[in-house]
Amino acid sequence: MSPLQAHFKTATSSPMIRELANPTRFMSLSGTLLPWLGGLAALLMAAGLYMVWFTAPADYQQGETVKIMYIHVPAAWLSLFFYMIMASSALGTLVWRHPLADVSQKAAAPIGAAFTLICLVTGSLWGKPMWGTYWQWDARLTSMLVMLLIYLGILALWRAIEEPNRAARAVSILTLVGAVNVPIVKFSVDWWNTLHQPASVFRLGGPTIHSSMLVPLLIVAVAFTLTGVALHLSGMRTEILRRRVRTLTILEAERLDAQAA
Protein backbone atom coordinates (compact mmCIF):
# COMPACT_ATOMS: atom_id res chain seq x y z
CA MET A 1 0.00 0.00 0.00
CA SER A 2 1.42 3.39 -1.00
CA PRO A 3 1.73 6.13 1.64
CA LEU A 4 -1.06 7.99 -0.11
CA GLN A 5 -3.37 4.99 0.04
CA ALA A 6 -2.36 4.36 3.64
CA HIS A 7 -3.26 7.91 4.48
CA PHE A 8 -6.65 7.60 2.88
CA LYS A 9 -7.39 4.07 4.13
CA THR A 10 -10.98 4.06 5.23
CA ALA A 11 -14.34 2.34 5.12
CA THR A 12 -17.10 3.88 3.06
CA SER A 13 -20.58 2.58 2.39
CA SER A 14 -21.92 3.39 -1.08
CA PRO A 15 -20.06 1.97 -4.11
CA MET A 16 -20.16 5.33 -5.94
CA ILE A 17 -18.76 7.19 -2.96
CA ARG A 18 -16.16 4.44 -2.55
CA GLU A 19 -15.14 4.90 -6.19
CA LEU A 20 -14.61 8.61 -5.62
CA ALA A 21 -12.86 7.86 -2.34
CA ASN A 22 -9.92 6.55 -4.30
CA PRO A 23 -7.64 9.62 -4.48
CA THR A 24 -5.92 8.35 -7.64
CA ARG A 25 -9.26 8.08 -9.41
CA PHE A 26 -10.28 11.51 -8.09
CA MET A 27 -7.01 13.03 -9.37
CA SER A 28 -7.51 11.62 -12.86
CA LEU A 29 -11.22 12.56 -13.04
CA SER A 30 -10.70 16.09 -11.69
CA GLY A 31 -7.66 16.59 -13.94
CA THR A 32 -9.84 15.91 -17.01
CA LEU A 33 -12.75 18.01 -15.75
CA LEU A 34 -10.79 21.07 -14.61
CA PRO A 35 -9.83 22.65 -17.99
CA TRP A 36 -13.42 22.25 -19.25
CA LEU A 37 -14.85 23.85 -16.12
CA GLY A 38 -12.35 26.70 -16.29
CA GLY A 39 -13.00 27.29 -19.99
CA LEU A 40 -16.79 27.25 -19.57
CA ALA A 41 -16.52 29.60 -16.57
CA ALA A 42 -14.41 32.07 -18.59
CA LEU A 43 -16.82 31.97 -21.56
CA LEU A 44 -19.91 32.50 -19.40
CA MET A 45 -18.15 35.25 -17.42
CA ALA A 46 -17.30 37.06 -20.68
CA ALA A 47 -20.89 36.67 -21.97
CA GLY A 48 -22.41 37.70 -18.64
CA LEU A 49 -20.18 40.76 -18.21
CA TYR A 50 -20.86 41.81 -21.83
CA MET A 51 -24.61 41.75 -21.08
CA VAL A 52 -24.11 43.61 -17.78
CA TRP A 53 -22.08 46.38 -19.37
CA PHE A 54 -23.69 46.69 -22.82
CA THR A 55 -27.26 45.35 -22.83
CA ALA A 56 -28.67 45.38 -19.27
CA PRO A 57 -30.57 48.63 -18.57
CA ALA A 58 -29.85 51.05 -15.74
CA ASP A 59 -32.32 50.82 -12.86
CA TYR A 60 -35.08 53.44 -12.89
CA GLN A 61 -34.27 54.41 -9.29
CA GLN A 62 -30.69 53.32 -8.70
CA GLY A 63 -29.25 54.27 -12.10
CA GLU A 64 -26.00 52.57 -13.04
CA THR A 65 -25.12 51.52 -9.47
CA VAL A 66 -27.37 48.51 -10.07
CA LYS A 67 -24.32 47.07 -11.91
CA ILE A 68 -22.88 46.28 -8.48
CA MET A 69 -25.75 43.81 -8.02
CA TYR A 70 -24.31 41.51 -10.73
CA ILE A 71 -21.27 40.74 -8.58
CA HIS A 72 -22.66 41.35 -5.09
CA VAL A 73 -25.54 38.85 -5.40
CA PRO A 74 -23.54 35.94 -6.94
CA ALA A 75 -20.81 36.49 -4.31
CA ALA A 76 -23.45 36.24 -1.55
CA TRP A 77 -24.89 33.04 -3.05
CA LEU A 78 -21.41 31.51 -3.31
CA SER A 79 -20.62 32.45 0.26
CA LEU A 80 -23.60 30.32 1.38
CA PHE A 81 -22.93 27.65 -1.28
CA PHE A 82 -19.37 27.06 -0.07
CA TYR A 83 -20.53 26.98 3.52
CA MET A 84 -23.02 24.25 2.55
CA ILE A 85 -20.18 22.36 0.82
CA MET A 86 -18.10 22.66 3.99
CA ALA A 87 -21.00 21.56 6.21
CA SER A 88 -21.80 18.50 4.08
CA SER A 89 -18.09 17.65 3.90
CA ALA A 90 -17.95 18.01 7.70
CA LEU A 91 -20.72 15.39 7.92
CA GLY A 92 -18.69 13.28 5.49
CA THR A 93 -15.72 13.52 7.83
CA LEU A 94 -17.54 12.87 11.10
CA VAL A 95 -20.23 10.40 10.04
CA TRP A 96 -18.91 8.50 7.02
CA ARG A 97 -15.18 9.14 7.42
CA HIS A 98 -14.97 9.74 3.71
CA PRO A 99 -11.29 10.23 2.87
CA LEU A 100 -11.88 13.17 0.55
CA ALA A 101 -14.36 14.93 2.85
CA ASP A 102 -11.77 16.77 4.93
CA VAL A 103 -9.80 17.57 1.78
CA SER A 104 -12.99 19.11 0.38
CA GLN A 105 -13.65 21.03 3.61
CA LYS A 106 -10.16 22.46 3.70
CA ALA A 107 -10.16 23.50 0.04
CA ALA A 108 -13.59 25.17 0.31
CA ALA A 109 -12.81 27.45 3.27
CA PRO A 110 -10.57 30.10 1.63
CA ILE A 111 -12.82 30.27 -1.45
CA GLY A 112 -15.95 30.77 0.65
CA ALA A 113 -14.17 33.38 2.76
CA ALA A 114 -13.05 35.27 -0.36
CA PHE A 115 -16.60 35.40 -1.78
CA THR A 116 -17.98 36.50 1.60
CA LEU A 117 -15.44 39.34 1.61
CA ILE A 118 -16.45 40.33 -1.94
CA CYS A 119 -20.11 40.28 -0.89
CA LEU A 120 -19.50 42.49 2.16
CA VAL A 121 -17.26 45.04 0.43
CA THR A 122 -19.37 45.36 -2.74
CA GLY A 123 -22.48 45.59 -0.55
CA SER A 124 -20.86 48.39 1.41
CA LEU A 125 -19.85 50.18 -1.81
CA TRP A 126 -23.43 49.82 -3.07
CA GLY A 127 -24.87 50.95 0.25
CA LYS A 128 -23.06 54.29 0.37
CA PRO A 129 -24.59 55.81 -2.80
CA MET A 130 -28.01 54.10 -2.32
CA TRP A 131 -28.61 54.12 1.44
CA GLY A 132 -26.24 56.92 2.34
CA THR A 133 -24.10 54.67 4.55
CA TYR A 134 -21.35 52.10 4.09
CA TRP A 135 -22.53 50.03 7.04
CA GLN A 136 -25.63 49.44 9.14
CA TRP A 137 -25.93 46.90 11.96
CA ASP A 138 -29.03 45.34 10.45
CA ALA A 139 -29.70 41.60 10.62
CA ARG A 140 -28.59 40.72 7.06
CA LEU A 141 -25.35 42.71 7.16
CA THR A 142 -24.45 41.59 10.66
CA SER A 143 -25.16 37.89 10.00
CA MET A 144 -23.02 38.11 6.85
CA LEU A 145 -20.18 39.66 8.88
CA VAL A 146 -20.57 36.79 11.38
CA MET A 147 -20.31 34.44 8.38
CA LEU A 148 -16.95 35.98 7.44
CA LEU A 149 -15.74 35.66 11.04
CA ILE A 150 -16.77 31.97 11.11
CA TYR A 151 -14.87 31.39 7.85
CA LEU A 152 -11.79 33.11 9.32
CA GLY A 153 -12.12 31.04 12.52
CA ILE A 154 -12.25 27.84 10.43
CA LEU A 155 -9.16 28.91 8.45
CA ALA A 156 -7.32 29.67 11.69
CA LEU A 157 -8.29 26.30 13.22
CA TRP A 158 -6.95 24.46 10.16
CA ARG A 159 -3.60 26.15 10.77
CA ALA A 160 -3.64 25.61 14.53
CA ILE A 161 -3.67 21.78 14.44
CA GLU A 162 -0.85 20.21 12.47
CA GLU A 163 -2.09 16.64 12.08
CA PRO A 164 -4.62 16.76 9.19
CA ASN A 165 -7.07 14.14 10.51
CA ARG A 166 -7.29 15.70 13.98
CA ALA A 167 -7.62 19.16 12.44
CA ALA A 168 -10.43 17.90 10.19
CA ARG A 169 -12.46 16.56 13.14
CA ALA A 170 -12.10 19.79 15.14
CA VAL A 171 -12.94 21.94 12.09
CA SER A 172 -15.95 19.71 11.28
CA ILE A 173 -17.51 20.42 14.67
CA LEU A 174 -16.90 24.17 14.34
CA THR A 175 -18.31 24.11 10.79
CA LEU A 176 -21.50 22.28 11.83
CA VAL A 177 -22.04 24.62 14.79
CA GLY A 178 -21.49 27.60 12.47
CA ALA A 179 -24.01 26.18 9.98
CA VAL A 180 -26.80 27.58 12.17
CA ASN A 181 -25.86 30.96 10.65
CA VAL A 182 -26.77 29.88 7.09
CA PRO A 183 -30.58 30.04 7.52
CA ILE A 184 -30.12 33.17 9.65
CA VAL A 185 -28.35 34.90 6.75
CA LYS A 186 -30.96 33.69 4.24
CA PHE A 187 -34.08 34.53 6.25
CA SER A 188 -32.79 37.53 8.22
CA VAL A 189 -34.55 39.85 5.76
CA ASP A 190 -37.89 38.13 6.48
CA TRP A 191 -37.51 37.60 10.23
CA TRP A 192 -36.35 41.11 11.08
CA ASN A 193 -37.02 44.59 9.83
CA THR A 194 -33.83 45.21 7.85
CA LEU A 195 -32.46 48.05 5.76
CA HIS A 196 -31.37 45.32 3.32
CA GLN A 197 -34.11 44.41 0.85
CA PRO A 198 -35.81 40.99 0.97
CA ALA A 199 -35.08 38.24 -1.59
CA SER A 200 -36.00 39.06 -5.18
CA VAL A 201 -34.78 35.97 -7.07
CA PHE A 202 -35.16 32.81 -4.94
CA ARG A 203 -38.57 33.46 -3.39
CA LEU A 204 -42.04 31.96 -3.35
CA GLY A 205 -43.99 33.47 -6.21
CA GLY A 206 -40.99 33.79 -8.51
CA PRO A 207 -38.38 36.47 -9.13
CA THR A 208 -39.38 40.13 -9.02
CA ILE A 209 -36.57 41.31 -11.30
CA HIS A 210 -37.22 42.04 -14.98
CA SER A 211 -35.69 39.46 -17.35
CA SER A 212 -33.38 42.11 -18.89
CA MET A 213 -31.57 42.15 -15.52
CA LEU A 214 -32.36 38.62 -14.32
CA VAL A 215 -30.76 36.86 -17.32
CA PRO A 216 -27.32 38.56 -17.02
CA LEU A 217 -27.47 38.11 -13.24
CA LEU A 218 -28.06 34.35 -13.60
CA ILE A 219 -25.34 34.02 -16.27
CA VAL A 220 -22.78 35.80 -14.06
CA ALA A 221 -23.94 33.68 -11.10
CA VAL A 222 -23.39 30.44 -13.04
CA ALA A 223 -19.96 31.75 -14.20
CA PHE A 224 -19.03 32.57 -10.58
CA THR A 225 -20.24 29.13 -9.47
CA LEU A 226 -18.22 27.31 -12.14
CA THR A 227 -15.15 29.41 -11.23
CA GLY A 228 -15.68 28.52 -7.57
CA VAL A 229 -16.14 24.80 -8.32
CA ALA A 230 -13.00 24.79 -10.52
CA LEU A 231 -11.05 26.50 -7.72
CA HIS A 232 -12.44 23.98 -5.24
CA LEU A 233 -11.42 20.98 -7.36
CA SER A 234 -7.99 22.49 -7.93
CA GLY A 235 -7.63 23.18 -4.19
CA MET A 236 -8.58 19.56 -3.41
CA ARG A 237 -5.97 18.28 -5.87
CA THR A 238 -3.29 20.46 -4.29
CA GLU A 239 -4.34 19.36 -0.80
CA ILE A 240 -4.02 15.68 -1.79
CA LEU A 241 -0.49 16.41 -3.06
CA ARG A 242 0.32 18.38 0.12
CA ARG A 243 -0.69 15.35 2.24
CA ARG A 244 1.43 13.08 0.11
CA VAL A 245 4.38 15.48 0.59
CA ARG A 246 3.72 15.39 4.34
CA THR A 247 3.60 11.57 4.46
CA LEU A 248 6.80 11.24 2.42
CA THR A 249 8.61 13.87 4.52
CA ILE A 250 7.74 11.92 7.68
CA LEU A 251 8.86 8.70 5.97
CA GLU A 252 12.18 10.32 5.02
CA ALA A 253 12.71 11.54 8.59
CA GLU A 254 11.95 8.05 9.97
CA ARG A 255 14.39 6.50 7.52
CA LEU A 256 17.13 8.97 8.49
CA ASP A 257 16.41 8.21 12.17
CA ALA A 258 16.73 4.48 11.55
CA GLN A 259 20.02 4.99 9.72
CA ALA A 260 21.41 7.13 12.54
CA ALA A 261 20.45 4.55 15.19
Partner: peptide
Amino acid sequence: HTFFIAFSYILTALVV
Protein backbone atom coordinates in the same frame (compact mmCIF):
# COMPACT_ATOMS: atom_id res chain seq x y z
CA HIS B 1 -21.43 56.59 -8.71
CA THR B 2 -18.75 55.54 -11.21
CA PHE B 3 -16.23 55.36 -8.36
CA PHE B 4 -18.37 52.89 -6.37
CA ILE B 5 -19.09 50.73 -9.41
CA ALA B 6 -15.46 50.68 -10.61
CA PHE B 7 -14.12 50.00 -7.10
CA SER B 8 -16.53 47.04 -6.72
CA TYR B 9 -15.53 45.47 -10.03
CA ILE B 10 -11.78 46.06 -9.55
CA LEU B 11 -11.85 44.59 -6.05
CA THR B 12 -13.82 41.54 -7.20
CA ALA B 13 -11.42 41.00 -10.12
CA LEU B 14 -8.40 41.28 -7.80
CA VAL B 15 -9.82 38.78 -5.28
CA VAL B 16 -10.79 36.24 -7.98
